[in-house]
Amino acid sequence: MEYFLEIFLGGLTRGSIYALIALGYTMVYGIIELINFAHGEIYMIGAFTGLIIASILTLVGLHPVAVLALASLAAVIYAAAYGFTIEKVAYKPLRHAQRLSPLISAIGMSIFLQNYVLLAQTSDFLPFPNLIPEFEFMDPYAHIIGSAEIVIILTTAVVMVLLTILIKFTKIGKAMRATAQDRNMAMLVGVNVNQVISVTFIIGSATAAIGGVLIASHVGMINFYIGFIAGIKAFTAAVLGGIGSIPGAVLGSFVLGWTESFATGYVSSDYEDVFAFALLVLILIFRPEGILGRSTAQKV
């Protein structure tokens, strides 16, 4: 039972990280129907910025909690800036192009960013300082769940709640929902669509950066390539839940996290990714619109 619980919570942690990345995918897709392939790279850049800032601050001799806070803040700011810039450079000029063009531009952007970090930093795995403190009250449960995992799950929950509030109750959230429903109509009623798209990229990138710092601190290793596989997994999660739907992305992430955890825990760790992709293929075959997605009839 304890083994089961451990795996269950491990899956929840994994799912939380996927959810933080998947949000960006699903929000961007909801608004401009683009698979933002460079999103995984933004997560990676967030983690790298976090690492660099954290290392400097640790050398200066700040308290680990302050280091974590400041490094996360820097990661969020930089990731958001990158998301914003990428949209302006690689996607905005293609807004009226055929459907394949932005996707290929996104693949190009992703390759570019990977190699940019590879050349400017290093191709080696860098050790990431463990910034999340060990809580004493967690000691009795330490064999089931670590403090870092608790922090990850709680942070994700807080981010989700904030995001829901933003989208449900603020003006920009309303504008985002309107743009997602019908971009032209939103423009007609005076929504600044370009601004909405920029904000979407910024928010999505920021949440991905939070995920990046948390997971890097938990796993303790990063390199320039972590974004690719995490991005694909998170996209899988977003599609599982029904792309374009925010609760769907979260649910899909947890389903994916549990699938991987249980597959590794009970079957074999070699095929972790195979299970993830097989799940994706199965879901898409039997329920192409995802778990929570709505199927829309195509009109002529």
């Binding site: 897709y29 129907e33 698979i35 459907r99 394949l100 996707l103 694909i232 996209f235 899988t236 599609v239 792309i243 095929y271 990714d273 195979v274 992709f277 097989a278 994706l280 293929v281 898409l284 075959i285 192409p288």
Partner: peptide
């Protein structure tokens, strides 16, 4: 199974399939 899917989904499923084969 996958050709019923719309463009973007097809892209991601074929990507997944490629990774499955490699893994």
């Amino acid at each position: 199974p996958v050709l019923r899917l719309r463009g973007d989904y097809l892209a991601i499923v074929t990507l997944g399939f490629g990774e499955i084969i490699r893994l």
